[in-house]
Design a protein around this nucleic acid. Structure first.
Lengths: 109, 109
DNA sequence: ATTTTATATTGCAATATTACGATGCATCTT
DNA sequence: AAGATGCATCGTAATATTGCAATATAAAAT
């Protein structure tokens, strides 16, 4: 079918899955790293740095924006992107709780 | 095309993307949470608890296993699954470094 | 040996993703 | 006003994902 049955899962599970999915692509990880490294907004520079076409990068940026992970502001001719602090904090919290739930050392398999 | 251009990204970016992708589905998050909560192996109980068909769950388990996130051992008739400590630790390290790279408060957009 | 039980695999249909060229749409420059 | 610049969007092709019924496989019980 190709259609996820979201209705049988909790809102938290769906939300975390959506956020992870938005990041689950090397291009989008590269984009986020680029924004994180410069610690400011990134205006356009992305095209040319990654080896992808402009249309493709625009599409990846859109996905990150739709997931609420980044936000963009029009700055004259170009558009500036930066991390959305609120979502990033949510991500840290949710993922931290999720990953931290593993109490290791029980290795039964 | 539908085919990711992995060759233009670093191994780290591709690896993290693969791990995130393996977790980026509510059913797989639910499966992992189920394993984490009981803090032991889970044998079969999954079918019936989630509202998905047996074939579907088996497929999700396979994806988690392929990504190295869980491991399974045949236990008589059934199969026991548990977290792969090595991958889980890798995930904590990589994701921690990635998420922690955000030095917030610069909000320029 | 046959049946039951638990999981895996196969085949299929519906939908989603990835990538790009072409094109549209603002804004800035001249 | 007429380019030039920087993104976004559309359309399209190739491939991937999701979900399930049906079937296969393997071990345990009868």
């Amino acid at each position: 079918m190709g259609l996820t049955k979201t209705e049988i899962f909790t809102d938290e599970q769906n939300q975390l899955a959506t956020l992870l999915k938005a990041m689950a692509h090397p291009a989008r990880i590269a984009i986020l790293q680029r924004i994180l490294i410069s610690n400011t907004c990134i205006c356009g520079d992305l095209v040319g740095e990654l080896g992808l076409a402009q249309a493709t990068i625009s599409q990846h940026l859109k996905e990150l924006k739709n997931a609420g992970i980044i936000q963009g502001t029009i700055e004259g001719v170009s558009v500036c992107y930066c991390i959305n602090p609120k979502t990033w904090k949510l991500l840290e919290t949710q993922l931290g709780a999720f990953l931290g739930e593993y109490k290791g050392e029980t290795a039964c398999c």
